[in-house]
Amino acid sequence: MSEEPLLRPEETDRIREAIAAAVLGAPDGLADSLERDPHGYLRLVDASRVGAEEASRLLREAVQGARAAGHSWDAVGRVLGVSRQAAQQRFAGKGAVAHPAPPAGSGPDGPERRTLGGLSAFNEMAALEEAGRDGWHMVGYGPFFHEVEASGQPWEHCRITLPSAARHRRMESEGWIPVGAGWFPWRYYKRPVDPGS
């Protein structure tokens, strides 16, 4: 029995076209060079390699996100067109600590750290809100956890889908501090809260 596809054919086509456009458009002059420069084809191979590596990373993070959202290996395998076992063998544990926190300060004077575990895409922001009110701020993350560090003031945290460069600059101009490089499809930010406000 076949299941209904999650993406419509036109959505699949748009994704494929966007990836091809990014591979051809990101390196300066690549598309134009293919008409006259044999070296351009080696640049195309390199750009395609980078695109494939990024697509593979996004897939790993998307699978971890689906697992963090409570989906079974069986459900993930069905979407990928493989068995539960094949999906689990390929993706379980890979990237489990994709954004570890930097080492805590040395000695007894270093800041206190703790791990908020058992988190999912649906409860992580509530856990960070509570921790932030108590003076903890995020310093690292991965699937099912956030690493937080104690401070003497409250913090707020936000999570947005991967922002454009303009939105990222606007967030920073509003005092938001990016945490890590993002965990597809999310980018995390934090900022201290003025205790008087």
Rank of each mutant, 00 (worst) to 15 (best):
S48P: 02
D74L: 11
V45W: 07
I19E: 00
S106W: 05
A20Y: 03
P102A: 11
D109G: 14
L80Q: 00
T12V: 15
V82L: 09
R8A: 15
A104M: 06
A96M: 10
Y41L: 15
R78D: 10
A26V: 14
A98G: 15
A98C: 13
Q89E: 13
R36F: 12
S33L: 08
G110S: 10
L80Y: 03
P27M: 10
L42M: 14
V82N: 03
I19A: 13
A92W: 10
A47T: 09
D37P: 02
V45R: 10
L59W: 02
A101D: 04
E10C: 12
L24I: 05
P102V: 05
G25W: 00
V79L: 13
A26D: 10
G110F: 06
G65K: 03
A101V: 01
A52T: 12
V97Q: 14
A52C: 06
P9V: 13
A55S: 12
E53N: 01
P38M: 10
A20K: 13
V82D: 03
I19Q: 11
R36N: 11
G93F: 08
H99P: 07
G29C: 01
A55Q: 08
V63S: 03
A66T: 03
A69G: 13
P108R: 14
G107H: 06
F91I: 05
E54R: 13
R49C: 10
S72I: 02
A55E: 02
T12Q: 15
R14H: 14
G40C: 00
E53F: 03
R60M: 08
H99R: 08
R57V: 01
R36D: 12
T12E: 15
A75N: 05
Q88S: 15
Y41H: 15
A31T: 01
A104W: 00
I15L: 15
Q85K: 13
E61Y: 09
R43Y: 07
S48N: 10
E61C: 01
D28T: 12
D74F: 02
R78V: 05
G81S: 06
Y41S: 11
L44K: 00
V82A: 06
A86K: 10
Q88M: 14
P27T: 00
A21H: 11
D46T: 14
G77F: 07
S56L: 12
R43W: 06
S106F: 07
P108Q: 12
P100F: 09
P100K: 02
P100A: 07
V82G: 04
L30R: 04
R36G: 10
S33K: 01
G107D: 04
A87E: 07
L59R: 10
G107I: 07
A104Q: 07
A26R: 14
L30K: 08
